[in-house]
Design a protein around this nucleic acid. Structure first.
Lengths: 191, 191
DNA sequence: ACTAAATCTTGTCAAATGGCAAGATTTACA
DNA sequence: TGTAAATCTTGCCATTTGACAAGATTTAGT
């Protein structure tokens, strides 16, 4: 798949024949809206490059509220780091919020590739570092920016999220209630 | 160093002779209180296992406030993931808040070890995954727990932080002001 | 031990956000 | 297309937290 090859090259350049070998180990899969890619309590066994659609990661807090931890958009990888790499039960759920198509690989196959192809291993590390970096950035913004600024930033950088996710999911991702987010929008509209 | 060997074995078991080889590539270094291990704008070139003392990671926000991003305590590694592995200028500072002693290794030497010793590579990945996991956990707590609960959790799990870091650093780490933290303590004391 | 600087506490008031509930709007699907 | 469910908005009031500033306490260095 073109998209996946382009993604690999953008993340960590790899010789074309090696990249093709990698991609051939993935298999295409489709999901319906509402399907779970990963359920809390399960050990994540799949790693996906998302071709189309959108998913959300979420946990349930002590008051039984669903708190969105991440949105996964097309042309990015979808997996839960801790459960997948440390082989422990996931605390997070990952669910399709639209119909999805992706290229999937199992843990053992991915690991085999990591061992055989140093370039792919470096690609994996680069991705891990990138994810880590983005999470740090988000964490930082959650304390240095106001809710309104965080909303505007998300709207700027990931407008597609607002087309597919209900307000409540976006609000909990931003760390506020849907009521507050609705008010923030209202105030912005009046400017 | 015993402590470092124990840390390696705890994180990802490695044959003793290999572990010894690894440790021998690190060199001991000492820092004074206030010394910077990493300065904003520099490309991080060192990775440290901290034997004694404590450091803080921080950034400066738009209003010139220092926001603590992490505390580094003895018997853990100290480095900034993005800058060290992606070779980009750091947005964070890492500074000693007490005199420190640690075992330090340069980027190129560490990478050489990663290439030569698959076990050490896996140790590195395990550490990266662990750090990522802990950051996710902290992120989650920042939205599901109240400031008071976050304070109590930190007090329970890392009491040593309170012995060395001024209130202001702890407060910004918890995502609140020093004033609020002071009030939280007052209320807790009254119970 | 003395003094200055750093740190911590506390008061007052303002702003941001949440909880709850009702009503408006949109969406899904029979 | 009609209707129920889901989603979004809004009003009211309470709570949390912040900004600022003054005073108390602790720490560091001579």
């Amino acid at each position: 798949m073109e998209k996946f090859l382009a993604f690999i090259q953008k993340t960590y350049p790899i010789p074309a024949n090696k990249a093709a070998e990698i991609v051939s180990c993935f298999e295409e899969r489709t999901y319906k809206k509402g399907d779970y890619f990963l359920k809390k309590g399960a050990i994540s066994n799949e790693y996906m490059f998302l071709l189309e659609g959108m998913l959300r990661g979420f946990v349930t807090d002590t008051e039984h509220n669903e708190v969105t931890t991440s949105f996964y958009t097309a042309n990015n990888v979808v997996f839960e780091v801790s459960s997948f790499f440390s082989r422990i039960p996931s605390v997070e759920n990952i669910q399709c919020i639209t119909p999805c198509t992706g290229l999937v690989i199992r843990f053992d196959v991915l690991n085999k590739l990591f061992h055989e192809l140093p370039e792919f291993r470096e690609f994996g590390r680069a991705l891990l570092v990138k994810g880590y970096t983005m999470l740090k950035k988000r964490m930082l913004e959650s304390v240095t920016l106001s809710a309104e600024e965080r909303y505007l930033e998300l709207l700027d950088n990931n407008p597609e999220i607002f087309r597919n996710a209900p307000l409540k999911m976006v609000a909990s991702y931003l760390g506020i209630t849907d009521t507050s987010l609705s008010r923030i929008r209202k105030e912005l509209a009046q400017k």
